[in-house]
Design a protein around this nucleic acid. Structure first.
Lengths: 242, 242
DNA sequence: TAGATTGTTAATCGATTAACAATC
DNA sequence: TAGATTGTTAATCGATTAACAATC
């Protein structure tokens, strides 16, 4: 669903390179991880953190896969993109594996997130505990409505979207979440990109155009319901039940 | 990411069947549409509705594809799963195509959505205009907190989650959105399924287990940010810039 | 050593793309 | 008829799965 196709040329696979695996090293770092695998790695990471909270120290691919809702084959294949951090006959050390997946995903330092739009959704996101706990600091929230600017949301005060550029600069934000109406999303998006932020998560129900090199992801709640509707309809339809 | 693999056996493709295409007919209906295509059809639908609002009557695969951020090849392939509703040398009638995509997705009748969880996110969803305008009626919202039960949210009054089953029954809800903490998500999910609702959209950051035949989709905002983090990190990394 | 489980291979499956015959 | 654009094919590409050799 995104924009990486080219690359992937560099011959050398981990096969023919001499096995000089320094333990605790970079592993398979530097290689492209397939998009589908990246998405699942975040799931494994959450499952591992749950295990850690429960005090579990070791886990097999079989049980981690089950907790994550995938096959053990898929799990091991995905982990192979990160490196070789298991022990044959034994399994994976939970903490050790967790650390390496986090490193592969770029989660070793905190990311600073600015939210544009302090409506219901923007406020919900700003207060969402799940961000902080996973290394994402919400450092600013913006709105265009003068009645809302200056209000407190969580720990933050709502900034005027007119001050977008200086506030992004001052807070050092390196990710932006767009939680605003479709009509203004593209223009705000352009300003965010111009301000040098290249990672954007949009909740606006509109196709945003961004230049090459900008990472844009989109979450659309109505789309999700429509996809459910398709499957629900199929289930109802008489015809040959699958 | 979902649960349909089997099926897909029924030989006959639209090729060797005699071309008795009654106009305005069911088209390729009854056939499985690949998951990736279903997701994109919702995008085309939105683009078509935008065109309709602008008064545009006709569109080519080339320009609809551009508005949707896909290649025209992908677009035509996707539409072929729905049926043949274009005219060679001319293009597609916007309204006509829109109606047929909507029909294929099961959006011809309204769906009744209940939201469980009246926290920030639940309230944001309940008030989100994008649902109503696309055929999803929010018919109920629940919370477990007695301080919140009875409050007004949008047009609705918050019901006690203790009354989940009777209220789902009475309102005729056929979709449920879970906007509640990870800790209680599974148990509420089980009750929803037991109550006969088989289409669930979850915002809870946890892997839910559902029986065969239940359609579950998951949106996780922290996951989205983590995926962005991966790409951002790659872009920063020196190495060979792709 | 015997048992267990990883990491990798090769086969299968599905999705995307380019090209073009069909046809308005 | 000539020009345009669909719908479909076949080729390519990527993702998933099953199986097993490597090895703890």
């Amino acid at each position: 669903m995104d924009s990486q196709r080219d690359a992937m040329e560099q011959t050398v696979t981990s096969l023919d390179s001499p096995p000089q695996a320094v333990p605790g090293d970079t592993g398979a770092a530097g290689k492209q991880i397939p998009p589908a695998a990246v998405a699942r790695l975040t799931i494994y990471l959450r499952a591992l953190n749950t295990l850690m909270a429960e005090g579990t120290e070791r886990v097999s691919s079989e049980s981690l896969a089950e907790a994550s809702g995938v096959s053990s084959s898929t799990l091991r294949k995905d982990l192979s993109h990160v490196g070789s951090y298991g022990t044959r006959g034994v399994g994976y050390e939970v903490q050790y594996l967790s650390r390496h997946i986090a490193a592969a995903l770029g989660l070793t330092h905190d990311w600073k997130v600015a939210i544009v739009g302090a409506g219901n959704l923007g406020k919900a996101l700003a207060r969402y505990g799940g961000f902080e706990s996973r290394g994402f600091d919400v450092v600013a929230i913006f709105d265009a409505d003068q009645m809302v600017v200056g209000n407190e949301v969580g720990w933050l005060r709502v900034s005027d979207v007119a001050d977008l550029e200086p506030v992004l600069e001052r807070t050092g934000a390196n990710m932006v979440v767009l939680a605003l109406p479709a009509a203004v999303a593209q223009s705000v998006c352009d300003r965010v990109v111009a301000a040098g932020v290249h990672s954007i998560l949009s909740f606006a129900p509109v196709m945003l155009q961004v230049p090459e090199g900008v990472n844009l992801r989109k979450v659309d709640m109505a789309t999700e319901l429509q996809i459910l509707a398709y499957h629900a309809q199929r289930a109802q339809t008489p015809g040959q039940p699958e």
